[in-house]
Design a protein around this nucleic acid. Structure first.
Lengths: 252, 252
DNA sequence: CGGCAGGTTGAGCGGATTCAAATACAGTGG
DNA sequence: CCACTGTATTTGAATCCGCTCAACCTGCCG
């Protein structure tokens, strides 16, 4: 299996063979499996390791006093779960597996060292953090100013782009086995309403959804429906090294 | 005037006199003034400097194709406008002054150097970035799962805590001269509805609002109304150095 | 076969929006 | 000093998007 962490960061910059080997070693040393709905990192926890998703699907979430749940981000292979762990005392939210998920454990000290390097690796990690900020801001725009229909479309289109970054798409379809309840928790809607918006997207021939596979039938029209503009993902450097990059460039 | 940047970061860790002097020099070297509604950094811009707010009030925002605006964060003295500028090609959103605002310009290279240090300064900058992530996540919870009334209360309570961090409160009141339109853009509401929720907060004796000054009459009840839990601000280290910290600790 | 989780459908409600108009207020020039 | 202007706040009424509650369907697994 290729290293999804490497693949993601290659969207920002090219790596030398030595750097790639270093990343490979980091994710190989210690790994962990997580069953669906299990916490990968609990709210309030602190550990000596960072977690990188290698396979499966996870989410950042917060529980509310009334039992409600808000999903703030989906984490796919190549994503870092807890970059903050080495500086903050404890997590202010939880990270849970949505499907069976494999993670790599990176010692906090190793991560600290990497982040302080002037190497491509150090820069790429920074890029990842800054991109996470951009994604969160875009979600705020979503929930603040966009309709339910657009929000769902936006989320699906963003996932298409992100899955393509790590080459987990086949054509325009990708495995994304979330329940409609998860989708509702991520978009700030009720499951019932999320369901109706999904039906509308299907009726309009924009997407297909079956067996946990999302098939984007018409990317251009979905992008329009989503009012999507990909600047916030900061893939603008991929053209500098077309050999490795450009995997998702045409979707932006 | 005391250095608000220092004051904010002291909520995370104590600084030596030398470190404080270094921060003072950084903000003294070059400053800029911005009139209300003017961009401090335009969407899509790139510059060789980071901006730190020294006085006044600014906001991060995005414009939507339909002319709508979403404010994603308010920036008060001590806040960094564009930590990402040294790694990303361009801004994915704009930062604009809300009231007349003074900023310090920090050369990108100096910021880069600071961030890579193992010093308290380097760590404190990291803490700032990670805290920004936490604040954004909390806003997502706000807009996704909380009612208009709670959202307004939450925003006001958060501002009280943050203003106290930089000692810009008098008792429980602080200068926060935003229009109700701004408030609506920040909470994802219409100005009309934001107005009605403000009236409710006033009618219930939780706050006073006049002439751009917010006066929190009953912090405890406002905190309840806001469903506020301050873990996401990561002030949990202040008790380690009670001499400088603990400014906002009692509000969490 | 029953149980259960997830998905779908319908009807009614309500929070927030929209549209519109009235009021308050500060600044500006005559 | 007051009329004039523009911006911000307030109020009212009608509308609508998304929620609530409830039922039913489907596929899967024991």
């Amino acid at each position: 299996m290729r290293n999804p962490w490497t693949m993601k960061m290659e969207q920002f910059t090219a790596f030398s063979d030595m750097e790639k080997r270093r990343l490979d070693e980091l994710i190989r040393s210690k790994q962990d499996e997580h069953a669906p709905k299990q916490d990968i990192i609990a709210d309030g926890a602190h550990s000596g390791h960072c977690h990188v998703v290698l396979s499966g699907l996870a989410c950042r979430y917060k529980m509310l006093p009334d039992g409600g749940r808000q999903i703030m981000a989906f984490l796919i292979p190549g994503d870092l779960c807890d970059a903050e762990i080495f500086i903050l005392k404890e997590m202010d939210h939880g990270v849970a597996a949505v499907t069976p998920t494999t993670t790599a454990l990176i010692p906090a000290e190793a991560m600290k060292t990497l982040l302080r390097e002037t190497s491509s690796l150090g820069e790429a990690l920074w890029w990842g953090t800054m991109t996470d900020l951009g994604v969160l801001r875009e979600r705020i725009v979503d929930e603040g100013r966009r309709s339910a229909y657009v929000r769902i479309a936006h989320l699906l289109y963003e996932m298409l782009v992100r899955y393509r970054m790590v080459e987990l798409t086949e054509g325009n379809s990708f495995v994304f086995p979330i329940t409609q309840t998860d989708l509702a928790d991520a978009t700030g809607l009720t499951p019932v309403h999320a369901n109706r918006m999904l039906q509308k997207l299907r009726a309009e021939g924009l997407i297909q959804l079956a067996g946990g596979v999302v098939n984007v039938l018409d990317p251009d029209r979905l992008k329009d429906a989503a009012q999507f503009s990909g600047a916030y993902l900061h893939l603008d450097r991929v053209h500098d090294h077309a050999a490795v990059g450009q995997r998702a460039g045409d979707l932006i």
